[in-house]
Design a protein around this nucleic acid. Structure first.
Lengths: 208, 208
DNA sequence: ACCCGCTTGTGAACCATGTCACAAGCGTCT
DNA sequence: AGACGCTTGTGACATGGTTCACAAGCGGGT
């Protein structure tokens, strides 16, 4: 079809999934894969996968399927995973530290370039070869480091303030883990991950 | 209307949000609230909130709004948050430990009653006043403790095996943090939280 | 007792998403 | 070269969710 006008959010959420699966196939040496093979990997319908992929041009080969290498490259480019993404982590409590470790490993193109906290015991300490800054230094340090993504792992009471400091400092995307509904800056892509709410959703199914 | 036939998943995901906001209002001493007041707290439309709430009977008062106390009680009951929910945590790495701390605090009705890992250095250690068991003991310990919810925080390579052990042991709901697409047991409510994928989604918006 | 303002509950229109079914097209085998 | 099997790309349909608009109804003030 035409060029990526605007990917629908649900399609977008599946692309990284496809990509992950394709990389596994790539490592196994598989060169081609059909939509129905992909479909049974995840629990999705083959036609949905085809529709998702067809939005970015026709790179399937009828009768054969998709070339794994080509699809990986294309999706990587589409998602912007062919560049390095610099991230800042705010809040170095147990969750923030775990996330820092968790998100920067692997061959992923996400690198942590700054860390912040307000706790005197943690400010100045080391995260790998990074120094933990005080959160009040966000406005200076963020532009210096060039971070564009921030991971927010502070207590709910501090989250809104930190969020605003970050967005004011030029951060363009935020992944929030504080259990609070942020008042969003519309210019900044903001995604919230709220464990408490997930648990409460699960609890609903256990009211037997 | 009639009794909770089956709540749609999107409605369900908003109910905990409402509840959290309502509890805050309750603490501030607010007795009544209108759908439009709630709407501007989150970024939702008032009519959506009314539709969500109207599914469980009419407890709004026309001209006035909703009674906060009543709504809190009703939603609490609906989500099953008026009982204690026993949870098991599997994988006590940095993420698992952080989650354990994070999810069991507060006045929330979720209590951790068992913890598991495979690492010799961690098995036998203490989590609060709990002992960390070896994961191979899942089939015995889960039924003993009566846990119905499990939090999976193990490496991707171990996740499917652990998931199956858990569901075979009577676990009824799983919150998975391993970066992998689980082959699900249809009898078990399974929710996956995948940080890597969230980051990749955000990266898409940064391909300037 | 009545009126008036405000807010709910809800049917209908609108939109997004996913499913189905099938024509178009590639590759292979004879 | 031609026919066949398989798989994609895609239009038409079905489903589910949200917004809109408004009648119904509560409560306070006169």
């Amino acid at each position: 079809m035409s060029e990526p006008a605007e990917i629908s959010p649900l399609t977008l959420s599946r692309l990284p999934l496809y990509l992950r699966c394709l990389r596994q196939l790539q490592e196994k040496g598989t060169t081609h894969v059909s939509s129905s093979q992909l479909a049974q990997q995840f629990e999705l319908s083959a036609s949905l996968i085809r529709k998702d992929l067809a939005q970015f041009g026709e790179f399937g080969i009828r009768g054969t399927g998709y070339r794994v290498d080509e699809l990986v490259d294309r999706l990587n480019g589409l998602l912007g995973l062919d560049r390095i993404h610099k991230m800042a982590v705010v809040g170095m409590g147990s969750l923030g530290s775990a996330l820092a470790r968790y998100l920067s490993v692997n061959d992923r193109p996400f690198k942590i370039v700054a860390a912040f906290d307000v706790d005197g015991g943690r400010v100045g300490s080391k995260l790998g070869h990074l120094i933990v800054h005080h959160s009040r230094e966000i406005p200076e340090v963020i532009p210096e480091t060039g971070a564009r993504i921030a991971v927010l792992a502070v207590p709910a009471s501090a989250a809104q303030k930190c969020y605003e400091d970050l967005t004011d400092s030029g951060i363009e995307a935020v992944l929030n883990f504080a259990p609070i509904r942020l008042k969003r800056n519309p210019a900044v892509r903001t995604k919230s991950v709220d464990f408490q709410i997930y648990l409460e959703e699960l609890a609903y199914f256990l009211r037997s």
